[in-house]
């Protein structure tokens, strides 16, 4: 019996890796700083102008989300996915962006300054007027991305091809 209870507890922890209270706070208040929303499914939540800074958002699912001008600064977004999402003007400064999927995302005027970019998928995304400053763009892909007036400063790899 004990083993069953332990097994259930482990499973529950895997399914709800995020803090349920934090998710509730985000839904009600539209912001949640220093939150644990790792592995959370945030697809149906309006995140426009939300403050999600300094949070654990690793493996979170933002696919098709409307999150323009959202603040993700200094958050851990490793393995998160933003496929086809609208994140125009979003702030990713100082965020951990390891293995993040931005495929077909609309990131016009997004700010990636000082973020840790590694193996990100920016393919077919719209990065017009986005800012890349102090980034390592070496291992990321930008195939068919819109790089119209994108700003690059002090990056390991300057302008992606």
């Amino acid at each position: 019996m004990k083993k069953i209870v332990i097994f259930i507890l482990i499973c529950t922890n895997i399914i709800f890796a995020f803090d349920v209270k934090d998710l509730q706070a985000l839904k009600e208040d539209g912001y949640c700083t220093q939150c644990d929303l790792s592995y959370a499914d945030l697809r149906d939540i309006d995140l426009a102008m939300s403050d999600l800074s300094d949070s654990n958002l690793s493996h979170a699912n933002f696919n098709n989300t409307l999150a323009h001008k959202a603040d993700f600064s200094r958050s851990d977004l490793s393995y998160a996915t933003f496929e086809n999402s609208n994140i125009k003007g979003a702030n990713f400064t100082g965020a951990n962006l390891k293995n993040v999927n931005f495929f077909e995302a609309r990131i016009w005027k997004g700010n990636f300054s000082n973020s840790h970019i590694d193996k990100c998928n920016f393919n077919e995304s719209a990065l017009g007027s986005a800012i890349f400053k102090n980034n390592n763009l070496k291992n990321s892909t930008f195939k068919d991305a819109i790089l119209y007036k994108t700003i690059y400063k002090q990056n390991v790899i300057g302008i992606p091809k």
């Binding site: 125009k88 016009w108 005027k109 007027s129 119209y148 007036k149």
Partner: peptide
């Protein structure tokens, strides 16, 4: 709006 300029210019 950079997206608007992109549409017009490109």
């Amino acid at each position: 709006c950079p997206e608007c300029s992109y549409m017009k210019e490109i």
